[in-house]
């Protein structure tokens, strides 16, 4: 590989990785405050992508005439609807299990994951759906690398959102409440924090971010499939673990790292092994550095 090819793969990886980082936010924040691996996150990402297509469909000719405005509307509507979905999931499938043994909510989240994906499969008839072309497909030559406007837009939006969420968690009252619950679930309510409300907000925020990631994915690749949430969710979870689960900046770091790794895998490895790389990273991180790159929580809780 020539240096410019290597640089190109790194840039491609960063673009894809920023989307994964956005999904990983939901995993990492929910895990941070209630120590639940929310498998449903992958399904919410997929739901967001499909809702985005639906909104584009509803907008019809308006979106074809004003593609960028259409995209903004699609992202916002999809994020809001998916946040509502996340609220529903939390209310129905997790809140009643708050005091259950830890494996029960995990199974419940798996059930939600399959329920959402199966519903999407039934509704769409397992047919892939197509996203419209929003930005010009003509790539820009930036020195040794080429990038499409779409890719630049995706990375900018995803990273900006992650920075915003980090700011929200670090510098707002709600964010401080989230960190308080993460630090000590039992003493946080004694400080006047409405734990139920904060947990709900966290779920909804994670769902909204996953939906944005879903729409960005759809814009980037052009099509969405009913099983995209399975692999996408797993990659994003790997990103969250790699960055240090429970650690908000870690989601970005983990997402970009996983993105770059899998981007190189597409060049170095034969076709079918590319996806296995993510599993390899996941196992290696859990076996050798379960606290992740930035490190926060040690994997000692059952």
């Amino acid at each position: 590989m020539s240096p410019s090819e290597i640089l190109q793969q790194i840039v491609n990886g960063l673009v894809v990785g920023s989307v994964y980082g956005l999904i990983a936010l939901g995993y990492t924040m929910v895990y941070g405050i209630i120590r639940l691996i929310n498998f449903a996150q992958g399904a919410l990402y997929e739901l967001g992508a499909y809702l985005g297509v639906a909104v584009f469909g509803l907008l019809g000719t308006f979106a074809t005439r004003n593609p960028i405005l259409g995209l903004v509307v699609a992202v916002i509507c999809s994020a809001l609807a998916t946040a509502a979905g996340a609220y529903l999931v939390e209310r129905v499938a997790y809140r009643p299990l708050r005091s259950a043994p830890p494996l029960t909510p995990l199974v419940s989240s798996l059930a939600v994951f399959f329920l959402v994906i199966s519903i999407i499969q039934v509704v769409t008839g397992a047919q892939p759906l197509t996203y419209p072309q929003v930005l010009s497909p003509r790539p820009w030559n930036l020195g040794p690398v080429t990038l499409t406007p779409t890719e630049v837009m995706i990375a900018v939006v995803a990273i900006a959102l992650m920075v915003a969420v980090n700011f929200y968690v670090q510098h707002t009252k709600t964010g401080r409440a989230m960190r308080a619950i993460a630090a000590n679930t039992r003493s946080a309510p004694l400080m006047g924090i409405n734990t139920t409300r904060i947990v709900t907000i966290t779920f909804m925020l994670g769902g909204a971010m996953a939906a944005v990631a879903g729409v960005l994915f759809g814009i980037n690749y052009g099509t969405v499939t009913y099983n995209m949430g399975e692999f996408g969710g797993l990659v994003a979870f790997t990103a969250a673990v790699l960055g240090g689960i429970g650690n908000v900046p870690g989601a970005l770091v983990g997402g970009l790292t996983v993105g770059v790794f899998s981007s190189f895998a597409t060049v170095v490895l034969p076709n079918q092994w590319q996806e296995a790389v993510v599993f390899g990273i996941l196992i290696a991180v859990l076996a050798f550095r379960p606290q992740g790159i930035l490190g926060e929580r040690v994997a000692d809780r059952a």
Binding site: R35, P102, L286
Partner: peptide
């Protein structure tokens, strides 16, 4: 099996995935 609880679940998921890709490749 050194990792506990939910992390174990993820790790076994990873191994299941690798066996699946190995079967394909």
């Amino acid at each position: 099996l050194r990792v506990r609880g939910d992390y174990l679940a993820i790790m076994t998921l990873g191994f299941g995935g690798i066996v699946y890709y190995a079967a394909q490749n």
